[in-house]
Design a protein around this nucleic acid. Structure first.
Length: 853
RNA sequence: GCGAAAGUGGCGGAACUGGCAGACGCGCUGGACUUAGGAUCCAGUAGCCGAAAGGCUGUGGGGGUUCGAAUCCCCCCUUUCGCACCA
């Protein structure tokens, strides 16, 4: 008997797969397609088992789909631009390109040693000009359509990364990458107009049926649609100025406007500067506003920030009451949401209520609760704001309306009189993509003194990222220090001009790479639309939950941009999404800095890639996080040993033969039972893999089948179970031709079904079974539902809710028949004990429930 | 604070639409084989009572619906995640 030697087997099959280009594919309209994709990797250097879990999950799905006859695209690539490589360069002086390419080479080796079935000839890396050229191309198309634009704005700034962050990249007020508290800066920045499709991104969420609900909720909240109205409160002109100015306030509760007893401005509101100038203490005014602005983000992190504000001394007119109300600046009003100004309705908004309480501003009830026993509210005794809808009062002609009616009636009135209009407000903001860093895609724009912003012509793409550069780590764009790069001529007028020196956020790279995989070597277009039409959308996309908003919302946006460009026809790029759980070690997320990483290569050396794959698939459902366990991995290895030994026994001693036709009528009881187990296992594994993706239970079904095989050989063959030595066990009746035929069927099915999980050992066993052609495209085993179900079922019988006996009945027994047998069962009779049977429920094939007095 | 998901043996987890709770694995216990075994094979392993047969209890807690609830409903507790003054 040959020993199970994972290392030799795995190297052998990895070489064979590579030599035969086993996972390469071309479009084939005659077959159904399946696009399996795992989120591509940032080449950090070494992948730990937390990273590779995702690739294993995707690989199981890709492999099973191949065996089921699908034309499977399963590519991989590298999200190769980004800050860590550049920061490392500042420290070490090693060029990011050098370190990135070395990291890619190492990680690619890791994935190959795991036997992941990637179509490596489609491999891409975003840091290569052949890829980022198309980032630039797309940016220019967006620029032409006004989907990419430049504006001066307050941006999120990470002082450690020395760059701008998109809103999506601010996590708990800190940088998503390093956690440094985010501050703000005023900068000229490039933005992508994701808000243009905000409504569509939101409404299409309802059709993403195969996405985790959690991700959809996060996206809905992120987009944050709210319907309301903008209402103008004219500034009451003071003595210092003549012109008329309106303060526009956004509200979702225009029905409460008669209760608006003040107006609040965000410290960032543009009018604040002017009001400061016109105030009698401009310096003090500015100091307070500045203090509020600085509070934002960082101060809020620690919890509730005390509401603060100051009176500007000016007044605005409530357009509905005609009343002049004070204008305050308040720290809790957000400058970047809505209009940066709100009407203060203390009776019906808790924040305004607290503010009014603190500063002694009037509280006026204009909505009364309406219902059984509702007590009328009184502004002077109110303990908290009444925020529910109710009956409108103290509001002139609108009195008596219900809140919801009042909202539409009052909005209409405001529109008629020109003092406001209905709007939809989104929390989602345009995506700031400028980064003041080196290691990214250069933005293909030229700044010309006479022509302004001039796009680089398509024919001059790509704008190559210069190689020679000094890494200083200072806050300006490193490219600005490269004269050969910066100095150019204007494509429009030919005069000297300067190149844009910002690079693109790397999330631009990752927002469309899944299309590039369809046609990765195209040098005239980002990809051939026909090829993308064949492969896309991605059928099965898996990756970490941390991308629930960032990557997954940007990609949905880019899909719509490509659709507008006529390159794709679908709306949604990913049909099904699986967010895999993390792998913890000692209760914490694996990370190099914490020193608790498990390197797949170490495990492969010890137990082999197959055992590692099997363990990771088996330990928990893919979505759940798991705690790493060496003992669990050993268990998986032991299981493969058991499989190996059994197949060896089968080949060497029992005399293997290919599975053939089996005549069910000639089988003995145990033969029947084993055959049933085989078919039942095929049914379970098939269903668990696709569509359920319950990889852990699929593995456990295979383990059960192996246990059954051991039982069978122990009890019905001369040799006993594998590993059993020297005892006189079993009868030789298991070596009847019928037994061997049933065993052959079981062994074939087992090896075939192991192939997606443990491809190397499965291939090896298949070859030893004398099979040719390999397992990559071997047909997935099929089951006969009748055989899987068996001929008999054991039905538990309950008496008053407790199981008191079991009866074995034929699978097709009638309810009456089952009932009769149940009542005749001695243990049941004993528990019924002569009492009156009030009711009998027969749940066919599952249970009999007898209710007695 | 708001929102979502989840609480099952010593541990990871099973239980598809309400129908035998604890599959499968880890760990542990015993046995076989052995010079030996931390290898292998076999068996046992939710708790309590019992020599056993068997009985009782049991899926975070409390109520409810039902012949029947881990699963559905209500209240509470805990944990995790997300959002965090969005007017």
């Amino acid at each position: 008997m040959t020993e199970y030697n994972p290392r030799a087997i795995e190297e052998k099959w990895q070489l064979r797969w590579a030599a035969s280009r086993a996972f390469e594919v071309v479009e084939d309209p005659s077959r159904p397609k399946f696009y399996a994709l795992e989120m591509f990797a940032y080449p950090s250097g070494h992948a730990h088992v937390g990273h590779v879990r995702n690739y294993m999950i995707g690989d199981v799905m890709a492999r099973v789909k191949r065996m089921r006859g699908y034309n499977v695209l399963h590519p991989f690539g590298w999200d190769a631009f980004g800050l860590p490589a550049e920061n490392a360069a500042i420290q070490s002086g090693i060029h990011p390109e050098t370190s990135t390419l070395a990291n890619i080479a190492h990680m690619k080796g890791q994935l190959q040693r795991l036997g992941i079935s990637y179509a490596w000839e489609r491999e891409l890396a975003t840091c290569l000009p052949e890829y980022y050229k198309w980032n630039q191309w797309l940016f220019l198309r967006m620029f032409e359509r006004d989907l990419a634009y430049r504006k001066r704005s307050t941006v999120n700034w990470c002082s450690s990364c020395q760059t701008v962050l998109a809103n999506e990249q601010v996590v708990d007020g800190g940088c998503w990458r390093c956690g440094t508290p985010v501050t703000t800066r005023e900068l000229e920045q490039w933005f992508l107009r994701i808000t243009a499709v905000a409504d569509e991104l939101l409404s299409a969420i309802d059709r993403l049926e195969d996405w985790p609900e959690k991700v959809l909720t996060m996206q809905r909240n992120w987009i944050g649609r709210s319907e309301g109205a903008r209402v103008r409160f004219p500034l009451v002109t003071g003595t210092m100025d003549g012109g008329s100015v309106d303060i526009e306030a956004f509200t979702t509760r225009i029905d409460t406007i008669f209760g608006a007893t003040f107006v609040l401005l965000a410290p960032e509101h543009p009018l604040v500067e002017r009001l400061a100038d016109e105030s009698n203490n401009p310096a003090g005014f500015r100091a307070s506003a500045d203090r509020f602005r600085r509070q934002d983000r960082t101060a809020r992190l620690t919890g509730d920030v005390e509401k603060e504000g100051f009176d500007t001394g000016r007044r605005a007119t409530n357009p509905f009451t005609g009343e002049q109300v004070p204008i305050w600046v308040a720290n809790f009003v957000l400058g970047d949401y809505g209009t940066g100004a709100v009407m203060g309705v203390p009776a019906h908004d808790q924040r305004d209520f607290e503010f009014a309480r603190k500063f002694g501003l009037p509280i006026r009830v204009v909505i009364q609760p309406d219902g059984d026993g509702a007590q009328p509210l009184d502004g002077s005794t109110l303990g908290e704001a009444f925020e529910q809808p109710g009956r409108v009062v103290n509001s002139g002609e609108f009195d008596g309306l219900w809140s919801t009616e009042a909202i539409s009636v009052m909005s209409e009135k405001a529109e008629r009189r020109g003092t406001g209009q209905r709007t939809v407000q989104f929390r989602l903001k345009d995506w700031g993509v400028s980064r003041q860093r080196y290691w990214g895609t250069p933005i293909p724009i030229v700044h010309c003194e006479s022509c302004g912003l001039v796009p680089v012509p398509d024919s001059e793409l790509p704008v190559i990222l210069p190689k020679v550069i000094e890494f200083t780590g200072r806050g300006d764009s490193p490219l600005a220090a490269v004269p050969d790069f910066v100095n150019t001529t204007c494509p429009a007028c030919g005069r000297p001009a300067r190149r844009e020196t910002d690079t693109m956020d790397t999330f631009v790279d990752s927002s469309w790479y899944f299309y590039r995989f369809c046609d990765p070597h195209n040098d005239s277009r980002p990809f051939d639309p026909a090829k993308a039409a064949y492969w896309c959308p991605v059928d099965f996309y898996s990756g970490g939950i941390e991308h629930a908003i960032l990557h997954l919302i940007y990609s949905r946006f880019f899909a719509r941009v490509y659709r507008e460009l006529g390159l794709v026809a679908h709306d949604e790029p990913f049909s099904r999404l699986l967010t895999q759980g993390m792998v913890l070690k000692d209760g914490r997320v694996m990370s190099k800095s914490k020193g608790n990483v498990v390197d797949p290569d170490d495990m492969i050396r010890k137990y082999g890639a197959d055992a590692l794959r099997l363990y990771v698939m088996f330990v928990a459902p893919p979505e759940k996080e798991v705690e790493w366990s060496d003992a669990g991995l050993e268990g998986a290895f032991r299981f493969l040993m058991r499989v190996w030994r059994f197949v060896q026994l089968w080949c060497d001693v029992l005399g293997h033969r290919p599975a053939g036709a089996i005549d069910g009528r000639t089988l003995s009881g145990p033969e029947r039972a084993l055959r049933r187990k085989t078919h039942e296992t095929i049914r379970r594994v098939t269903h668990d893999l696709d569509p359920r993706v319950h990889l852990n239970t699929a593995v456990s079904a295979l383990m059960e089948l192996v246990n059954e095989l051991y039982q069978f050989s122990e009890q019905h063959t001369r040799t006993g179970a594998p590993g059993r030595k020297g005892t006189d066990v079993g009868a030789a009746d298991g070596e009847r031709p019928e037994s061997l035929a049933v065993l052959a069927e079981a062994v074939d099915a087992l090896v075939l079904m192991l192939a997606p999980f443990t491809p190397h050992v499965a291939e090896e066993l298949w070859e030893r079974l004398g099979r040719e052609g390999g397992l990559v495209h071997a047909p997935w085993p099929t089951f006969d539902p009748d055989i899987a179900r068996g001929e008999e079922v054991v039905v538990p019988v309950q008496v008053n809710g407790k199981v008191r006996g079991r009866v074995a009945v034929p699978i097709d027994a009638s309810d009456a028949d089952i009932e009769r047998r149940a009542l005749a069962e001695p243990s049941v009779v004993q528990h019924v004990g002569g009492r009156t049977v009030r009711k009998i429920i027969v749940a066919k094939g599952r249970l009999v429930s007898i209710v007695v007095q």
